[in-house]
Design a protein around this nucleic acid. Structure first.
Lengths: 135, 135
DNA sequence: TAGCGTAATATACAACAGGGAATAACGGAA
DNA sequence: TTCCGTTATTCCCTGTTGTATATTACGCTA
């Protein structure tokens, strides 16, 4: 089962350890990031920017800006939206959008492997941390 | 020659590619990050939080809060400061602080290698992104 | 003792990212 | 035609983060 209405901001739960944030830059700055990719997945799921935004507890305004930013920076649209008509309109993720999702999750997974490795290699090595060595 | 007065914020120069930010969390949140480590190095260089902050175009208040945050989360002080006396006082980086600097730069270097690798492996793979990006 | 430059601390101010709400445009359906 | 829900767009408000500024504490030195 999916976790709906997941709050993305303000996770104060993280304890000590190696942390990081990754994204992919485009011509105007951030092109793909964690929140943007989750947004794409929610749009795919709901067929609506409005519902996708609500499910993430994100304002429509912000969601729309993210979609617009991605579409402007991609060579082909990642999201196609239409206004009016049945159901008032809607939005869907293109094939290019699906590629973006796959690409980012791969990057994301590799990054978490990297963090885990680094924490093992650096945190518990002999020459660093955990020495009684007073001044 | 060192690069002094380097502005750390707002680097809009980055072009397209794989980007990221790393840090090490402690009990209260961020423990070591890029800005904090550079601050430690500047304190080592100038022997003064005030001068270190100025050289980074950072407010003393902010610099002091970062130092305080690191000291509170470390098992041993990373920076020892004294008030009054010759020159009005000063601050210096402890042996533990030096370890923190080394640890973070190693993490940082590894991360940049990782980003470079990922960009090679994911950006120019067959099943993802298209063409070899001519000009 | 007075002077000096620093650490330490509090208050006010500025910038900015994002939320909330309001509104218009749109086009199929009843 | 009227209704409806969504996209698209604008304006205002708020919380957060860091800057600016002012003040006090401090301890060596002259």
């Amino acid at each position: 089962m999916h976790k709906k209405n997941t709050r993305l901001r303000k996770r104060k739960v993280s304890s000590a350890g190696f942390r990081g944030r990754i994204w992919i830059d485009g011509a105007e700055g951030t092109f793909l990031g964690y929140g943007r990719i989750v947004l794409l997945e929610r749009i795919r799921e709901y067929g609506s920017i409005t519902k996708a935004a609500k499910s993430m507890e994100m304002s429509y305004r912000h969601a729309w800006e993210l979609v617009d930013s991605m579409n402007r920076q991609a060579q082909k649209l990642l999201v196609e939206a239409s206004t009016g008509g049945k159901g008032g309109g809607g939005a869907h993720v293109t094939e290019e959008g699906e590629k973006a999702i796959k690409l980012f999750w791969q990057f994301y997974a590799d990054f978490h492997d990297f963090l885990k490795q680094e924490e093992q290699n650096l945190m518990f090595s002999d020459k660093n941390q955990q020495r009684r060595r007073k001044v």
